[in-house]
Amino acid sequence: MYIKIDHNSGIPISAQMVDQIKYLAVSGALKGNDKIPSVRALASELKLNPTTVARVYRQLEADEIIYTQRGSGTFIAPRRSALTKNEKERRLAGDIRKLVVEAGRMGMDFDDLMLLVCDEIEAIRGSQGKKHKPGKGKREGKVNEHR
């Protein structure tokens, strides 16, 4: 699992990790039921405090991005579409408004904003299209870096 942490950005490390693992899951770099490293293995790999990684896993579990099976490890949860279309829209409305307001505040052309959003969707679609092979995750994860 390729994760890049910026230690001096001021963004909580756990928030950076949650974002990136969600991205890997949504983009298809990590597929449903893929096994992910244990808390300690990931903490050792990233040279992080295990309590920080445990916090990330708790958050991801609450968000239903991962699930843990006692004795066998932690896995990416298969994507669910249990939410109704209305509910999904309701949950996203706030974030979308914030994005539009922020763009407006900076005086950005809304057409340009649309293009940016489309680019981001294309990037995720592009990586979803690729068949994920073990060991390839590292390269695919890097899609994240340009953000």
Binding site: R40, A43, S44, K47, L48, N49, P50
Partner: peptide
């Protein structure tokens, strides 16, 4: 040195 500390905390 600091990485060694993290290894320790992880083992």
């Amino acid at each position: 040195f600091l990485d060694s500390l993290m290894e320790l905390a992880n083992t």
